[in-house]
Simulated assay, not measured.
Amino acid sequence: MDMMQTVHTLTSITPARPWGLDIPNYFWFTGSSAAAFIVSSFAHVFGMKKFKPIAGFSLLVAFVLLVAAPLNLIDDLRQPGRMINFFLYGWENFGTSPMKWGVLLLATYPVLILAEALVLYRPFLVRRLQEANRGVTRAFYKGLTLGRTDLSEEALHKDERLGFILGAVGIPLALCVHGYTGYILGVVHSSPLWHTPLMPILFLASAMVSGTGLLLVILPVAQRFFTTTGRIDKEVMTALARLLGWSIIIDLVVRFFWLTFAVAFNSNERYRLMDFFGYHFHEILWVEYVLCLLIPMIIAFSRLGRRLPWQFAIGFVAAVGVWLFRWNTVIGGQTIGKTTAGLLSYHPHLFGAGSIGAVMANWLLFVALLCAVLLVFPWDEEMDRHYGKELES
């Protein structure tokens, strides 16, 4: 019996990684959602007027990102039916299980975002209800208004107060939704790349970079092609570019602490990490740090940061850079062998579960859901209310 147990143990040692391409994509989506929500809260909670025209739009982007994100987890399970196990088992370990925290957060956070969106857009939805002719359309918009059709000053003031409360509650909830993903990695003792209390903070800092970068990419497209004026708000784009620059600075500072503590002062695992960063040196330094972080940061604070093509470019490059960081962290952390010397390799396949095709399908789903949500919620009417007829061309 002892011999059989020994053989079973030895055959269970495998270089295969447990997490594949879906997981860094999931981390990217949840982080960008949290950042988009925070940008929306700049207007609703902190009263920053320059972000008010895009507050509702950012809120909808945050909602769609979070709806699409968990599908990466389902795909990574290989058998979608396994998802039910998250809800049925393990609750006795809730206090020490970040994944259980995630179950509640992923169920609560999108509901809060949707509730805030319904409150924010209620006056516009009521007007659509009044203009609707068909019974099905009227029933649909009446459901979205939750039966509240009062447009008096008192009712609008109540909406504003409720939106403030939901936004204030949503900020720590948004931070927790993405912070727990970094927490999941940080508590893993077996990976020297992950095991640090800085991991949740690192994920949050880089999330602001990816979320702001995503808004710099999709906002001008939405304003140019899907609004009645067809004009792009240069002031908001410049504000987002500056926000991107400051987010990159914070991200770089946190990464400095992470790398110096992990490599320079980690007496036990420093040589394994030095092998890892040495092997990926050019990829991490020149692509991830210089091209995707330092150059966008410099452009964001320069005169070029006031020009639309450069704003679009640095937003795209910075968002891609954070995705690469998620890849290098999640997949790279699993390539550091636990029982073997050297580094393991991982090459994602093109089709099937956990493949490049699955990730691309998730992105296409995000685009489709975003289009559907933007058709339902009158975000363009909200922008017109803020802009009037004076948008700069």
Results as ranks from 00 to 15, higher is better:
Asp2Lys: 13
Thr11Asp: 15
Ser12Thr: 12
Pro15Trp: 02
Ile23Asp: 10
Pro24Met: 12
Ala35Gly: 07
Ile38Asn: 01
Ser41Ile: 07
Ala43Asn: 09
Gly47Ala: 13
Gly56Met: 04
Leu60Glu: 06
Ala62Ser: 15
Val64Trp: 14
Val67Trp: 10
Ala69Asn: 10
Pro80Ala: 06
Ile84Cys: 03
Ile84Thr: 15
Asn85Thr: 13
Asn85Asp: 15
Phe87Asp: 09
Gly90Val: 14
Trp91Arg: 04
Trp91Gln: 08
Ser97Cys: 04
Ser97Leu: 06
Gly102Trp: 10
Leu106Tyr: 10
Ile113Ala: 07
Val119Glu: 08
Val119Ser: 10
Leu120Gly: 07
Arg122Phe: 10
Leu125Lys: 04
Arg127Met: 07
Arg128Lys: 15
Glu131Asn: 09
Arg134His: 15
Gly135Met: 08
Ala139Thr: 09
Thr145Pro: 04
Arg148His: 14
Asp150Phe: 05
Asp150Pro: 01
Asp150Met: 03
Leu151Lys: 12
Glu154Asp: 13
Lys158Asn: 12
Gly167Ser: 10
Ala168Tyr: 03
Ile171Gly: 06
Cys176Asn: 05
Tyr180Leu: 03
Gly182Ala: 11
Tyr183Phe: 13
Ile184Phe: 10
Gly186Ser: 07
Gly186Pro: 09
Val188Leu: 10
His189Gly: 03
Ser190Thr: 15
His195Gly: 08
Pro197Tyr: 09
Pro197Trp: 11
Leu198Trp: 13
Pro200Lys: 14
Leu204Asn: 13
Ser206Leu: 08
Thr212Ala: 02
Leu215Trp: 12
Leu215Ala: 11
Val217Gln: 05
Val221Ala: 08
Val221Leu: 14
Phe225Asn: 06
Thr227Ile: 08
Arg231Gly: 03
Arg231Gln: 14
Gly245His: 02
Ser247Val: 04
Phe256Thr: 09
Phe257Thr: 03
Leu259Tyr: 07
Thr260Ser: 13
Phe265Lys: 01
Ser267Lys: 14
Arg270Ala: 15
Tyr271Met: 13
Arg272Tyr: 01
Leu273Ile: 02
Met274Gly: 09
Gly278Phe: 00
Phe281Asn: 00
Phe281His: 03
Ile284Arg: 00
Ile284Glu: 01
Val287Tyr: 07
Glu288Leu: 03
Leu294Val: 14
Leu294Asn: 08
Met297Pro: 09
Ile298Arg: 01
Ile299Arg: 00
Ala300His: 00
Phe301Gly: 04
Arg303Gln: 08
Arg306Met: 09
Arg306Trp: 04
Ala313Cys: 09
Ala313Lys: 00
Phe316Tyr: 00
Val317Leu: 01
Trp323Ala: 07
Trp323Lys: 06
Gly333Tyr: 08
Gly333Pro: 10
Lys338Tyr: 04
Thr339His: 11
His347Asn: 10
His347Lys: 09
Pro348His: 04
His349Cys: 07
Leu350Pro: 02
Ala358Leu: 10
Leu364Lys: 08
Leu364Thr: 06
Val373Arg: 01
Leu375Val: 11
Trp379Gly: 03
Glu381Asn: 12
Arg385Val: 00
Glu390Tyr: 12
Leu391His: 08
Glu392Tyr: 03
Glu392Met: 13
Ser393Trp: 14
Ser393Lys: 15
